[in-house]
């Protein structure tokens, strides 16, 4: 009933009729407030899925519905963050975070008059992700992990209902990654935002998500949907439980099998 995202039997082909069929027969639903993770072999169409949900690509067949409306153009209730933080180097971190407000229709006309209010909100977000006082620094003065934190703030500044994360922690070292898992976990708990996380890190998926979707090799479709049983709030210690490891193990097996089939 309260699906925020529903994808029905979607085919997406790149580059005309004879091009690459990236996903085929893709069907999945994500509830409001849910944390969903999508895992699958590389090249299976995970990024394509992100672009279908945000309206950057329109599928040839099937429908994508986000927030009760069929997606036919980019949907601005979505925030996005990629592996590559893509901060603009000529803007300070704070100005980078405010960038979406200069674009999104319902904010761009208010921005000038309500600058104070927006700056305060950006600073609140910076504090939540542990970057208090770094707003005036330029992105190249921040470490990779700090840039990715700022990137999350930018994805959240316009209060999106849906946050799409495409392998956001892929380029970070193990410790920084775990710190950012906790940041995301707390953001999800505090803001009530729906999150779809694409990742190849199965421990990350199991630690963070309520639901894990396993995709087949290209053309991608959903092979299996898992509920993650662990209680929230989850602590990093949960990763040392045997049930956690069993789940990671099972997922690993499924993806290995999906790859072999391809």
């Amino acid at each position: 009933m309260s699906h925020l995202v529903s994808i029905d039997n979607v085919d997406m082909r790149y580059g005309g009729a004879s091009g690459t069929l990236a996903v085929s027969g893709l069907t999945m639903r994500v509830d409001k407030g849910e944390f969903a993770a999508v895992v699958g072999p590389s090249g299976c169409g995970k990024s394509t899925l992100m672009k279908l949900v945000t309206g950057l690509h329109i599928p040839q067949t099937g429908v994508v519905i986000v927030g009760g409306q069929q997606v036919t153009k980019p949907v601005s209730i979505v925030g996005m963050a990629f592996q590559n933080p893509t901060m603009l180097p000529w803007r300070t971190t704070l100005e980078n975070i405010l960038l979406p407000l200069e674009i999104v229709e319902r904010h761009r006309h208010r921005l000038r008059a309500h600058k104070r209010e927006y700056v305060e909100k950006a600073e609140q977000l910076l504090e939540i992700v542990g970057l208090r006082g770094f707003g005036s620094k330029f992105p190249w003065q921040l470490s990779g992990g700090m840039q990715q934190r700022a990137n999350l703030c930018r994805a959240l500044i316009h209060e999106p209902e849906l946050l799409m994360l495409d392998e956001p922690f892929g380029a970070l070292d193990a410790f920084t990654r775990e710190e950012l898992w906790c940041v995301i976990r707390d953001l999800h708990a505090a803001q009530g935002v729906t999150i779809i996380l694409v990742t190849h890190d199965l421990r990350e998926a199991v630690f963070l998500a309520d639901t894990i979707f396993v995709m087949s090799a290209r053309p991608g479709r959903i092979l299996k949907e898992h509920r993650v049983p662990f209680e929230r709030p989850r602590d990093l210690d949960v990763m040392y439980q045997s049930a956690f490891n069993d789940m990671v193990h099972a997922l690993h097996g499924e993806i290995a099998k999906a790859r072999v089939v391809a």
């Binding site: 309206g55 950057l56 980019p74 979505v78 996005m80 990629f82 893509t86 603009l88």
Partner: peptide, 23 residues
Amino acid sequence: IEPETEDVLRALGAKKMDIMLKV
């Protein structure tokens, strides 16, 4: 322009003109 930057902005509803001016 990095395609990711363009994607982030287009997903927010940016027009070609916005992308040129901002990035």
